[in-house]
C-alpha cells in the first residue's frame, strides 16, 4: 500500500504542477473504524470484569453496611477504625517484618550471586544457571511440607526462619533477573576500575551496583511482593498466633461465623498500600532507566 501511495504522489508532482499535493484518500477508513469500535467494546467489557472486584473493595471499605454486592455506600470510616487495632494491626506489622527481612536477605545474597555468575569463571556455569532458572519455577507447595518437617524438628516454626525461607524461594528468580542486568554493564568499566586499584567490593559498590540498580530494584520489589503476599508458607511455617502476617489475618476474617465484608475490604485495602507505594516509587526509578549512555561507545 505504501508503495502505491508514493507512486501516485510522485505522479501528481510530475504531471499536474498547479494543484497542491494531497495524500491519496484512504478507502479503508470506515472499515477500520468499525473494527476498532468492536475491539474496544470487547476490551472495555473485559476491563469492567477486572475492575469490578476492585470497585467493590473500595466501596465496601467505606460502607458501614457493606455486603457482598456492589452498592452505593453508607459512607463511614468505621471499618478502617475497626481493623487498625489490636492483633490485626500487629499482623500488618508482622508482614512488614517478614517482607523486609526476606527482601534484604534475598537482595544482598542475590547481588553477590548474580555478579559472580555474570563475571566470574565458574565450573559448570551454564548448567548452574539452567538449574537456577528451573528452580525458580518449582511450586512452593512441593517444598513446604518437607520444609515444615525440618523446621518443626529444629524448632524453627516462627517468623524469622520463615522470612529466610521466603527469601530463598524468591532468590533464583532474583539472581536470574539481576544477572541479566549486570551482564549489561560493560566489562570495560570494571576493568578500568580494577586498573585504578579498586577492590572487588569497591567495583561492586561504585560501578556495578549503581549501573544495575534498576534491575536490582526490580528484583527486590519482586522479592518484597513475594514475601508480602505469601499465604501458604506463613500459614504452615509460623505457629505462634501473634507472629501471623496480614494474609492469614484476612483469611481468619472469612472463618468468622458472620462475614464482616466492610472490615475485610478495609483491611485488604490497607494491605495493598505498601505495594502501591513501592510501585509508585520504583516506577520513577524505571523511568530514569539505564544510565549506561555515554559511558562506553562502540
Amino acid at each position: 500500500m505504501t508503495h502505491n501511495d508514493s507512486a501516485s504522489t510522485s505522479q501528481v508532482t510530475t504531471t499536474v504542477v498547479d494543484e497542491p499535493i494531497r495524500p491519496p484518500e484512504n478507502r479503508q477508513t470506515q472499515r477500520t473504524l468499525v473494527r476498532s469500535l468492536t475491539l474496544h467494546t470487547i476490551l472495555a467489557g473485559l476491563g469492567i470484569l477486572f475492575l469490578a472486584p476492585m470497585l467493590w473493595l473500595f466501596l465496601a471499605s467505606i460502607d458501614s453496611h457493606a455486603s457482598w454486592g456492589i452498592e452505593w455506600p453508607h459512607f463511614s470510616l468505621i471499618n478502617f477504625r475497626h481493623v487498625l487495632t489490636g492483633s490485626l494491626l500487629h499482623s500488618l506489622w508482622n508482614s512488614v517484618v517478614l517482607a523486609f527481612i526476606s527482601t534484604t536477605i534475598a537482595s544482598v545474597a542475590g547481588v553477590f550471586a548474580a555478579y559472580a555468575l555474570s563475571r566470574r569463571r565458574i565450573p559448570f556455569k551454564g548448567p548452574l544457571i539452567l538449574f537456577i532458572i528451573f528452580s525458580s519455577g518449582v511450586p512452593l507447595a512441593i517444598m513446604v511440607i518437607p520444609v515444615y518437617e525440618i523446621f518443626s524438628r529444629f524448632g524453627f516454626l516462627s517468623i524469622l526462619p520463615t522470612a529466610v525461607f521466603l527469601s530463598v524461594t524468591s532468590l533464583p528468580f532474583e539472581v536470574y533477573l539481576m544477572k541479566n542486568f549486570i551482564d549489561a554493564v560493560p566489562t570495560d568499566l570494571e576493568e578500568a576500575a580494577r586498573m585504578e586499584r579498586a577492590s572487588t567490593l569497591q567495583v561492586l559498590r561504585r560501578v556495578v551496583i549503581p549501573l544495575a540498580l534498576p534491575g536490582i530494584a526490580a528484583a527486590a520489589i519482586f522479592g518484597f511482593v513475594n514475601a508480602w503476599g505469601s499465604f501458604v508458607v506463613p500459614l504452615i511455617l509460623i505457629s505462634p498466633a501473634n507472629q501471623q502476617p496480614a494474609p492469614i489475618a484476612i483469611y481468619t476474617f472469612l472463618t468468622l461465623p458472620k462475614a464482616q465484608f466492610g472490615n475485610i475490604a478495609a483491611y485488604s485495602l490497607i494491605f495493598c498500600v505498601p505495594v502501591f507505594i513501592l510501585y509508585a516509587v520504583s516506577s520513577r526509578l524505571f523511568r530514569e532507566g539505564f544510565v549506561l549512555g555515554g559511558g562506553v561507545k562502540g
Partner: peptide
C-alpha cells in the same frame, strides 16, 4: 593507566567524579 577503546567512563558519575575515582579508591 589505560585508555580504553570504548572510553569506559562511569556513566553514573560526572566528569569530575570520573577523574576523582582513581585517587579516591587509592
Amino acid at each position: 593507566s589505560m585508555v580504553f577503546q570504548s572510553y569506559a567512563l562511569y556513566p553514573n558519575m560526572t566528569v569530575y567524579k570520573n577523574l576523582a575515582f582513581g585517587p579516591k579508591v587509592r
